[in-house]
Computed example of a mutant assay.
Amino acid sequence: MLNGYTALFATCLAPAGRLADRYGRRRLFLAGVAVFTVASAACAAAPSIGLLVAFRAVQAIGAALVMPTSLALLLTAFPPHRRPADPILVAGLSLAPGPLVAVVPVSVLGGRFVHRFGPG
């Protein structure tokens, strides 16, 4: 499931950037957020592993629409003198706390969290 998401996400990044240039960054960003959100809800409700994998693939497409457009929108929203020195570094560092924050419910609630929200 993880490899499929990563492979599809990486495959869709360049075409998503080209689509954003053609149809508008804001439009594609909003479409990507919508696709990712709906696919996330579908993942949560997936009744089988097969559907979960399919919905994760749709999530990857939504994420690929969001990623190139988000940085482009930020760079055009701020004048050069107000931008951080390295926007890619700032974006990368902002992603670091996510996995750490996700571990807290599992660590605190232990098996109850996994049993209630985990697979099967």
Rank of each mutant, 00 (worst) to 15 (best):
P119H: 15
R112C: 03
G120W: 12
V38G: 00
A54V: 14
R18Q: 06
P99T: 14
A64G: 07
P68E: 03
P87G: 07
I88G: 10
P80T: 01
S48P: 11
P84A: 14
I88S: 05
A96V: 14
A54K: 11
A77I: 11
I61P: 03
P15F: 07
P79W: 00
S40D: 00
A102L: 15
G4W: 10
V108I: 15
A63K: 07
F78C: 06
V108D: 04
G118Q: 12
L19N: 02
L8K: 06
L93D: 04
G98H: 02
R26L: 13
A34H: 11
V58M: 09
A102Q: 11
A39V: 00
D21K: 01
F113K: 09
Y23L: 13
R27V: 13
T76C: 04
L28N: 05
A96P: 01
R18V: 13
P47D: 12
P87Q: 08
L2R: 03
V35R: 03
R18E: 01
V66S: 00
R116K: 08
P119V: 11
A14D: 02
V114G: 12
F117H: 14
A10C: 03
G50S: 06
G17D: 05
G110N: 13
P47L: 14
A57D: 04
A14N: 02
V53D: 08
G120F: 14
G62K: 10
D21V: 02
A60Y: 14
G62R: 02
R116Y: 13
A96Y: 12
A96K: 02
P97T: 13
A85I: 10
V108N: 09
S40E: 00
V33H: 00
R27A: 12
T11R: 05
T69P: 02
L95R: 05
S48K: 09
A46W: 14
P68N: 05
I61M: 07
A54W: 12
C43L: 11
A72C: 13
